[in-house]
Design a protein around this nucleic acid. Structure first.
Lengths: 197, 197
DNA sequence: AACGTAACGGACGCATGCGTCCACTTGCTG
DNA sequence: CAGCAAGTGGACGCATGCGTCCGTTACGTT
Protein backbone atom coordinates (compact mmCIF):
# COMPACT_ATOMS: atom_id res chain seq x y z
CA UNK A 1 0.00 0.00 0.00
CA UNK A 2 1.15 3.51 -0.60
CA UNK A 3 -0.69 6.72 -0.04
CA UNK A 4 2.48 8.65 -0.72
CA UNK A 5 3.87 9.88 -3.99
CA UNK A 6 5.93 7.60 -6.11
CA UNK A 7 9.67 8.14 -5.63
CA UNK A 8 10.25 9.91 -8.93
CA UNK A 9 7.17 12.04 -8.41
CA UNK A 10 8.31 13.12 -4.98
CA UNK A 11 11.71 14.05 -6.35
CA UNK A 12 10.20 16.12 -9.14
CA UNK A 13 7.94 17.84 -6.67
CA UNK A 14 10.91 18.77 -4.53
CA UNK A 15 12.81 20.12 -7.50
CA UNK A 16 9.81 22.22 -8.48
CA UNK A 17 9.59 23.69 -5.00
CA UNK A 18 13.29 24.45 -4.94
CA UNK A 19 13.11 26.12 -8.34
CA UNK A 20 10.09 28.13 -7.28
CA UNK A 21 11.81 29.33 -4.13
CA UNK A 22 14.87 30.42 -6.08
CA UNK A 23 12.95 32.23 -8.77
CA UNK A 24 10.46 33.86 -6.41
CA UNK A 25 13.30 35.12 -4.26
CA UNK A 26 15.23 36.52 -7.20
CA UNK A 27 12.44 37.98 -9.28
CA UNK A 28 9.24 38.18 -7.29
CA UNK A 29 5.92 36.55 -7.89
CA UNK A 30 5.61 37.51 -11.51
CA UNK A 31 7.84 34.69 -12.72
CA UNK A 32 5.83 32.44 -14.99
CA UNK A 33 4.85 28.87 -14.22
CA UNK A 34 6.79 27.90 -17.32
CA UNK A 35 10.00 29.47 -16.04
CA UNK A 36 9.67 27.50 -12.83
CA UNK A 37 9.03 24.28 -14.72
CA UNK A 38 12.02 24.90 -16.97
CA UNK A 39 14.33 25.63 -14.07
CA UNK A 40 13.14 22.43 -12.39
CA UNK A 41 13.70 20.42 -15.59
CA UNK A 42 10.09 19.36 -15.62
CA UNK A 43 7.24 19.60 -18.07
CA UNK A 44 4.47 22.14 -17.44
CA UNK A 45 1.95 19.37 -16.88
CA UNK A 46 3.97 17.96 -14.00
CA UNK A 47 4.08 21.32 -12.33
CA UNK A 48 0.35 21.87 -12.76
CA UNK A 49 -0.52 18.41 -11.46
CA UNK A 50 1.26 19.04 -8.16
CA UNK A 51 0.29 22.68 -7.87
CA UNK A 52 -2.89 23.33 -9.84
CA UNK A 53 -2.66 27.05 -9.18
CA UNK A 54 0.16 29.45 -8.56
CA UNK A 55 -1.38 30.22 -5.20
CA UNK A 56 -0.76 26.61 -4.08
CA UNK A 57 2.86 26.86 -5.12
CA UNK A 58 3.38 30.20 -3.44
CA UNK A 59 1.83 29.08 -0.18
CA UNK A 60 4.07 26.05 0.10
CA UNK A 61 7.18 27.80 -1.20
CA UNK A 62 6.92 30.45 1.50
CA UNK A 63 6.02 28.22 4.41
CA UNK A 64 9.54 28.63 5.82
CA UNK A 65 9.56 32.38 5.38
CA UNK A 66 6.19 32.66 7.01
CA UNK A 67 7.44 30.60 9.93
CA UNK A 68 10.55 32.73 10.22
CA UNK A 69 8.44 35.85 10.14
CA UNK A 70 6.46 34.47 13.04
CA UNK A 71 9.54 33.62 15.08
CA UNK A 72 10.91 37.08 14.49
CA UNK A 73 7.78 38.67 15.82
CA UNK A 74 7.43 36.30 18.75
CA UNK A 75 11.12 36.64 19.60
CA UNK A 76 10.65 40.37 19.71
CA UNK A 77 7.58 39.98 21.82
CA UNK A 78 9.44 37.71 24.24
CA UNK A 79 12.30 40.17 24.76
CA UNK A 80 12.06 41.60 28.27
CA UNK A 81 13.14 44.96 26.81
CA UNK A 82 10.27 45.89 24.49
CA UNK A 83 12.27 48.63 22.80
CA UNK A 84 15.07 46.26 21.87
CA UNK A 85 12.43 43.74 20.83
CA UNK A 86 10.84 46.24 18.50
CA UNK A 87 14.18 47.24 17.01
CA UNK A 88 15.01 43.62 16.33
CA UNK A 89 11.66 42.99 14.73
CA UNK A 90 12.03 45.99 12.46
CA UNK A 91 15.51 45.10 11.33
CA UNK A 92 14.95 41.38 10.93
CA UNK A 93 11.64 41.68 9.13
CA UNK A 94 13.10 44.27 6.80
CA UNK A 95 16.03 41.98 6.03
CA UNK A 96 13.80 38.98 5.48
CA UNK A 97 11.66 40.92 3.07
CA UNK A 98 14.51 42.52 1.21
CA UNK A 99 16.17 39.18 0.63
CA UNK A 100 13.11 37.67 -0.87
CA UNK A 101 11.33 39.74 -3.44
CA UNK A 102 8.57 37.18 -3.84
CA UNK A 103 7.82 36.86 -0.16
CA UNK A 104 7.57 40.61 0.07
CA UNK A 105 5.12 40.65 -2.81
CA UNK A 106 3.07 37.94 -1.17
CA UNK A 107 3.20 39.27 2.35
CA UNK A 108 2.37 42.80 1.31
CA UNK A 109 -0.30 41.49 -1.03
CA UNK A 110 1.27 43.19 -3.99
CA UNK A 111 -0.54 40.64 -6.13
CA UNK A 112 -3.85 40.00 -4.35
CA UNK A 113 -5.01 37.93 -7.30
CA UNK A 114 -2.19 35.45 -6.76
CA UNK A 115 -2.10 35.06 -3.04
CA UNK A 116 -3.34 36.79 0.06
CA UNK A 117 -1.48 36.58 3.34
CA UNK A 118 -3.81 39.05 5.02
CA UNK A 119 -4.73 36.58 7.75
CA UNK A 120 -1.12 36.00 8.78
CA UNK A 121 -0.38 39.66 8.49
CA UNK A 122 -3.21 40.56 10.79
CA UNK A 123 -2.30 38.01 13.40
CA UNK A 124 1.34 39.09 13.55
CA UNK A 125 0.18 42.68 13.46
CA UNK A 126 -1.63 42.26 16.75
CA UNK A 127 1.51 40.94 18.40
CA UNK A 128 3.54 43.84 17.04
CA UNK A 129 0.94 46.24 18.40
CA UNK A 130 1.48 44.91 21.90
CA UNK A 131 5.24 45.34 21.56
CA UNK A 132 4.65 48.91 20.45
CA UNK A 133 2.45 49.60 23.44
CA UNK A 134 4.94 48.14 25.87
CA UNK A 135 7.85 50.04 24.34
CA UNK A 136 5.88 53.23 24.69
CA UNK A 137 4.93 52.43 28.27
CA UNK A 138 8.64 52.00 28.96
CA UNK A 139 9.14 55.50 27.57
CA UNK A 140 11.55 54.39 24.89
CA UNK A 141 9.37 54.58 21.77
CA UNK A 142 8.01 57.92 20.63
CA UNK A 143 4.48 58.14 21.99
CA UNK A 144 2.90 59.13 18.69
CA UNK A 145 4.01 55.94 16.97
CA UNK A 146 1.12 53.79 15.79
CA UNK A 147 0.87 50.42 14.14
CA UNK A 148 0.22 51.98 10.75
CA UNK A 149 3.64 53.55 10.97
CA UNK A 150 5.08 50.08 11.30
CA UNK A 151 3.22 49.09 8.15
CA UNK A 152 4.58 52.15 6.38
CA UNK A 153 8.11 51.14 7.32
CA UNK A 154 7.62 47.64 5.96
CA UNK A 155 6.11 49.03 2.80
CA UNK A 156 9.08 51.32 2.42
CA UNK A 157 11.45 48.42 2.95
CA UNK A 158 9.80 46.88 -0.07
CA UNK A 159 11.40 49.54 -2.21
CA UNK A 160 14.84 48.37 -1.15
CA UNK A 161 14.38 45.11 -2.98
CA UNK A 162 15.23 47.19 -6.05
CA UNK A 163 18.74 47.83 -4.74
CA UNK A 164 21.48 45.73 -6.33
CA UNK A 165 21.76 42.44 -4.49
CA UNK A 166 25.39 43.07 -3.60
CA UNK A 167 24.61 46.12 -1.49
CA UNK A 168 21.09 45.24 -0.45
CA UNK A 169 21.77 43.90 3.02
CA UNK A 170 23.90 46.90 3.83
CA UNK A 171 21.23 49.25 2.48
CA UNK A 172 18.54 47.55 4.54
CA UNK A 173 20.58 47.67 7.72
CA UNK A 174 21.38 51.29 7.16
CA UNK A 175 17.74 52.02 6.48
CA UNK A 176 16.69 50.20 9.62
CA UNK A 177 19.22 52.17 11.63
CA UNK A 178 17.98 55.51 10.27
CA UNK A 179 14.37 54.58 10.94
CA UNK A 180 15.10 53.35 14.42
CA UNK A 181 16.85 56.59 15.25
CA UNK A 182 13.66 58.31 14.20
CA UNK A 183 11.59 56.15 16.51
CA UNK A 184 13.25 56.93 19.81
CA UNK A 185 11.28 58.91 22.30
CA UNK A 186 12.66 62.41 22.74
CA UNK A 187 15.39 62.49 25.35
CA UNK A 188 16.50 58.88 24.89
CA UNK A 189 19.46 59.45 22.63
CA UNK A 190 21.59 56.68 21.32
CA UNK A 191 24.96 56.56 23.04
CA UNK A 192 23.55 57.03 26.52
CA UNK A 193 23.76 53.35 27.28
CA UNK A 194 20.22 52.82 26.12
CA UNK A 195 20.85 52.15 22.47
CA UNK A 196 19.25 49.31 20.61
CA UNK A 197 21.63 46.52 19.59
CA UNK B 1 3.98 76.35 -45.71
CA UNK B 2 3.76 74.28 -42.65
CA UNK B 3 6.55 72.58 -40.82
CA UNK B 4 4.21 71.87 -37.96
CA UNK B 5 1.89 68.95 -37.46
CA UNK B 6 -1.50 69.03 -39.02
CA UNK B 7 -4.19 70.15 -36.61
CA UNK B 8 -5.71 66.72 -36.11
CA UNK B 9 -2.30 65.15 -35.76
CA UNK B 10 -1.29 67.59 -33.08
CA UNK B 11 -4.47 66.94 -31.18
CA UNK B 12 -3.96 63.21 -31.31
CA UNK B 13 -0.40 63.62 -30.19
CA UNK B 14 -1.56 65.63 -27.21
CA UNK B 15 -4.18 63.06 -26.31
CA UNK B 16 -1.56 60.32 -26.46
CA UNK B 17 0.73 62.23 -24.14
CA UNK B 18 -2.09 62.88 -21.71
CA UNK B 19 -3.10 59.24 -21.73
CA UNK B 20 0.48 58.15 -21.23
CA UNK B 21 0.91 60.49 -18.29
CA UNK B 22 -2.24 59.18 -16.65
CA UNK B 23 -1.41 55.53 -17.13
CA UNK B 24 2.24 55.85 -16.20
CA UNK B 25 1.30 57.66 -13.03
CA UNK B 26 -1.32 55.09 -12.07
CA UNK B 27 0.40 51.89 -13.05
CA UNK B 28 4.07 52.50 -13.72
CA UNK B 29 6.07 51.99 -16.86
CA UNK B 30 4.85 48.49 -17.56
CA UNK B 31 1.60 49.66 -19.15
CA UNK B 32 1.51 48.54 -22.75
CA UNK B 33 1.67 50.81 -25.76
CA UNK B 34 -1.73 49.40 -26.71
CA UNK B 35 -3.30 50.45 -23.43
CA UNK B 36 -2.03 53.96 -23.98
CA UNK B 37 -3.36 54.04 -27.52
CA UNK B 38 -6.73 52.74 -26.38
CA UNK B 39 -7.01 55.29 -23.59
CA UNK B 40 -6.13 58.04 -26.09
CA UNK B 41 -8.72 56.74 -28.57
CA UNK B 42 -6.07 56.31 -31.18
CA UNK B 43 -4.81 53.42 -33.29
CA UNK B 44 -1.51 51.77 -32.42
CA UNK B 45 0.05 53.01 -35.65
CA UNK B 46 -0.63 56.61 -34.74
CA UNK B 47 1.06 56.15 -31.41
CA UNK B 48 4.10 54.49 -32.95
CA UNK B 49 4.43 57.15 -35.65
CA UNK B 50 4.73 59.93 -33.07
CA UNK B 51 6.74 57.92 -30.57
CA UNK B 52 8.60 55.12 -32.31
CA UNK B 53 9.82 53.74 -29.02
CA UNK B 54 8.46 53.70 -25.51
CA UNK B 55 11.57 55.55 -24.41
CA UNK B 56 10.56 58.53 -26.57
CA UNK B 57 7.15 58.58 -24.98
CA UNK B 58 8.48 58.25 -21.46
CA UNK B 59 11.01 61.02 -21.91
CA UNK B 60 8.42 63.50 -23.12
CA UNK B 61 5.73 62.37 -20.70
CA UNK B 62 7.99 63.02 -17.71
CA UNK B 63 9.50 66.29 -18.84
CA UNK B 64 7.39 68.14 -16.29
CA UNK B 65 8.23 65.79 -13.46
CA UNK B 66 11.89 66.01 -14.29
CA UNK B 67 11.67 69.78 -14.23
CA UNK B 68 9.83 69.73 -10.93
CA UNK B 69 12.43 67.40 -9.52
CA UNK B 70 15.07 69.91 -10.51
CA UNK B 71 13.27 72.83 -8.92
CA UNK B 72 12.82 70.89 -5.73
CA UNK B 73 16.51 70.21 -5.48
CA UNK B 74 17.55 73.73 -6.46
CA UNK B 75 14.99 75.24 -4.10
CA UNK B 76 16.48 73.17 -1.31
CA UNK B 77 19.94 74.21 -2.32
CA UNK B 78 18.92 77.87 -2.32
CA UNK B 79 17.49 77.74 1.18
CA UNK B 80 19.78 79.69 3.54
CA UNK B 81 19.12 77.03 6.16
CA UNK B 82 20.64 73.87 4.67
CA UNK B 83 18.92 71.60 7.17
CA UNK B 84 15.51 72.94 6.29
CA UNK B 85 16.50 72.74 2.62
CA UNK B 86 17.40 69.08 2.98
CA UNK B 87 14.19 68.30 4.84
CA UNK B 88 12.16 69.95 2.11
CA UNK B 89 13.99 68.07 -0.60
CA UNK B 90 13.43 64.77 1.13
CA UNK B 91 9.74 65.31 1.69
CA UNK B 92 8.98 66.83 -1.69
CA UNK B 93 10.94 64.33 -3.73
CA UNK B 94 9.33 61.49 -1.83
CA UNK B 95 5.89 62.93 -2.50
CA UNK B 96 6.61 63.48 -6.17
CA UNK B 97 7.80 59.93 -6.56
CA UNK B 98 5.00 58.37 -4.59
CA UNK B 99 2.40 60.18 -6.65
CA UNK B 100 3.80 58.94 -9.88
CA UNK B 101 4.63 55.29 -10.04
CA UNK B 102 5.99 55.58 -13.56
CA UNK B 103 8.28 58.49 -12.82
CA UNK B 104 9.68 56.58 -9.89
CA UNK B 105 10.33 53.60 -12.11
CA UNK B 106 12.05 55.80 -14.67
CA UNK B 107 14.01 57.91 -12.23
CA UNK B 108 15.20 54.96 -10.21
CA UNK B 109 15.90 53.06 -13.43
CA UNK B 110 13.67 50.23 -12.41
CA UNK B 111 13.41 49.43 -16.12
CA UNK B 112 16.82 50.27 -17.56
CA UNK B 113 15.78 48.76 -20.88
CA UNK B 114 12.99 51.28 -21.26
CA UNK B 115 14.61 54.49 -20.14
CA UNK B 116 17.60 55.66 -18.20
CA UNK B 117 17.59 58.88 -16.23
CA UNK B 118 21.03 58.23 -14.80
CA UNK B 119 22.42 61.47 -16.19
CA UNK B 120 19.75 63.61 -14.52
CA UNK B 121 20.04 61.61 -11.36
CA UNK B 122 23.74 62.16 -11.17
CA UNK B 123 23.52 65.87 -11.79
CA UNK B 124 20.90 66.40 -9.11
CA UNK B 125 22.80 64.07 -6.85
CA UNK B 126 25.76 66.41 -6.85
CA UNK B 127 23.59 69.29 -5.75
CA UNK B 128 22.07 67.22 -2.98
CA UNK B 129 25.55 66.27 -1.84
CA UNK B 130 26.42 69.91 -1.32
CA UNK B 131 23.26 70.44 0.71
CA UNK B 132 24.22 67.47 2.83
CA UNK B 133 27.68 68.85 3.43
CA UNK B 134 26.37 72.27 4.39
CA UNK B 135 23.75 70.85 6.74
CA UNK B 136 26.45 68.84 8.45
CA UNK B 137 28.74 71.86 8.67
CA UNK B 138 25.86 73.66 10.39
CA UNK B 139 25.76 70.82 12.91
CA UNK B 140 22.17 69.93 12.18
CA UNK B 141 22.52 66.77 10.12
CA UNK B 142 24.05 63.67 11.68
CA UNK B 143 27.69 63.64 10.64
CA UNK B 144 27.68 60.04 9.45
CA UNK B 145 25.05 60.72 6.82
CA UNK B 146 26.29 60.14 3.27
CA UNK B 147 24.74 60.57 -0.14
CA UNK B 148 24.09 56.87 -0.48
CA UNK B 149 21.78 57.15 2.50
CA UNK B 150 19.77 59.67 0.56
CA UNK B 151 19.52 57.20 -2.30
CA UNK B 152 18.40 54.53 0.13
CA UNK B 153 15.64 56.79 1.39
CA UNK B 154 14.41 57.47 -2.12
CA UNK B 155 14.51 53.80 -2.93
CA UNK B 156 12.52 53.09 0.18
CA UNK B 157 9.99 55.72 -0.77
CA UNK B 158 9.45 53.70 -3.91
CA UNK B 159 7.84 51.02 -1.82
CA UNK B 160 5.18 53.46 -0.70
CA UNK B 161 3.75 53.64 -4.18
CA UNK B 162 2.15 50.33 -3.24
CA UNK B 163 0.05 52.02 -0.56
CA UNK B 164 -3.57 52.64 -1.51
CA UNK B 165 -3.84 55.96 -3.31
CA UNK B 166 -6.23 57.34 -0.73
CA UNK B 167 -3.72 57.16 2.10
CA UNK B 168 -0.55 57.46 0.10
CA UNK B 169 0.19 61.11 0.66
CA UNK B 170 -0.34 60.74 4.36
CA UNK B 171 1.87 57.66 4.45
CA UNK B 172 4.64 59.45 2.57
CA UNK B 173 4.50 62.49 4.82
CA UNK B 174 4.59 60.30 7.88
CA UNK B 175 7.49 58.34 6.45
CA UNK B 176 9.36 61.53 5.66
CA UNK B 177 8.79 62.77 9.19
CA UNK B 178 10.10 59.56 10.73
CA UNK B 179 13.16 59.57 8.50
CA UNK B 180 13.88 63.21 9.18
CA UNK B 181 13.74 62.61 12.89
CA UNK B 182 16.37 59.95 12.33
CA UNK B 183 18.59 62.37 10.47
CA UNK B 184 19.00 65.03 13.11
CA UNK B 185 22.38 65.39 14.69
CA UNK B 186 22.44 64.24 18.29
CA UNK B 187 21.43 67.02 20.62
CA UNK B 188 19.30 68.93 18.11
CA UNK B 189 15.88 67.67 19.14
CA UNK B 190 12.74 68.73 17.43
CA UNK B 191 10.73 71.10 19.57
CA UNK B 192 13.72 73.20 20.61
CA UNK B 193 12.92 75.86 18.10
CA UNK B 194 15.12 74.23 15.53
CA UNK B 195 12.60 71.91 13.93
CA UNK B 196 12.32 71.49 10.23
CA UNK B 197 9.20 72.89 8.46
C1' DA C 1 -14.41 73.24 -55.11
C1' DA C 2 -10.77 69.97 -56.10
C1' DC C 3 -6.77 67.72 -55.22
C1' DG C 4 -2.40 65.78 -53.12
C1' DT C 5 -0.64 64.08 -49.21
C1' DA C 6 -0.22 63.75 -44.21
C1' DA C 7 -2.48 61.13 -41.06
C1' DC C 8 -5.34 57.45 -39.54
C1' DG C 9 -6.55 52.81 -37.57
C1' DG C 10 -7.72 48.04 -38.55
C1' DA C 11 -5.49 43.90 -39.49
C1' DC C 12 -1.48 40.98 -39.99
C1' DG C 13 2.47 37.84 -38.56
C1' DC C 14 5.30 36.87 -34.80
C1' DA C 15 6.36 35.77 -30.04
C1' DT C 16 5.14 34.30 -25.47
C1' DG C 17 2.35 32.73 -21.55
C1' DC C 18 -1.56 30.26 -20.26
C1' DG C 19 -3.94 25.61 -18.72
C1' DT C 20 -5.11 21.02 -20.64
C1' DC C 21 -5.03 16.73 -23.19
C1' DC C 22 -2.99 12.42 -24.36
C1' DA C 23 0.27 8.91 -26.03
C1' DC C 24 4.32 7.15 -23.97
C1' DT C 25 7.36 5.74 -20.00
C1' DT C 26 8.49 3.85 -15.59
C1' DG C 27 8.24 2.75 -10.64
C1' DC C 28 5.98 -0.34 -7.69
C1' DT C 29 3.56 -4.50 -6.31
C1' DG C 30 2.22 -9.15 -6.37
C1' DC D 1 9.48 -10.46 -13.80
C1' DA D 2 5.23 -9.04 -15.56
C1' DG D 3 1.43 -5.88 -15.65
C1' DC D 4 -0.86 -1.78 -14.43
C1' DA D 5 -1.63 2.56 -12.71
C1' DA D 6 0.90 6.61 -11.53
C1' DG D 7 3.63 9.72 -13.69
C1' DT D 8 5.59 12.35 -17.52
C1' DG D 9 6.39 16.07 -21.03
C1' DG D 10 5.48 17.54 -25.71
C1' DA D 11 2.01 19.67 -28.25
C1' DC D 12 -2.34 22.04 -28.74
C1' DG D 13 -5.76 25.99 -28.75
C1' DC D 14 -6.52 30.28 -26.75
C1' DA D 15 -5.33 34.90 -25.37
C1' DT D 16 -2.50 38.98 -25.45
C1' DG D 17 1.29 42.14 -26.61
C1' DC D 18 4.43 43.41 -30.01
C1' DG D 19 5.79 46.49 -34.29
C1' DT D 20 4.46 47.16 -39.18
C1' DC D 21 1.89 47.45 -43.46
C1' DC D 22 -1.51 49.49 -46.28
C1' DG D 23 -6.15 50.89 -47.99
C1' DT D 24 -9.01 54.75 -46.52
C1' DT D 25 -10.06 59.40 -44.64
C1' DA D 26 -9.92 64.22 -44.35
C1' DC D 27 -6.91 68.50 -43.68
C1' DG D 28 -5.09 72.38 -45.80
C1' DT D 29 -3.66 74.37 -49.93
C1' DT D 30 -4.37 76.53 -54.47
Amino acid sequence: MTHLLRADARENRDRVLAAARELFAESGLEVTMRQIARRADVGPATLYRRFPTKQDLVLEAFEDELAECSSIVYDGSADPDPWRGLCDVVERVLLLNARNQGFTDAFMSAHPDVVDFAAHREKLGRVVSTIIRRAQAAGRLRPDFVFDDFAVILLAGRGLTAAPASTRDAAVRRFAALIIDGLRAAGTEAGTGQECT
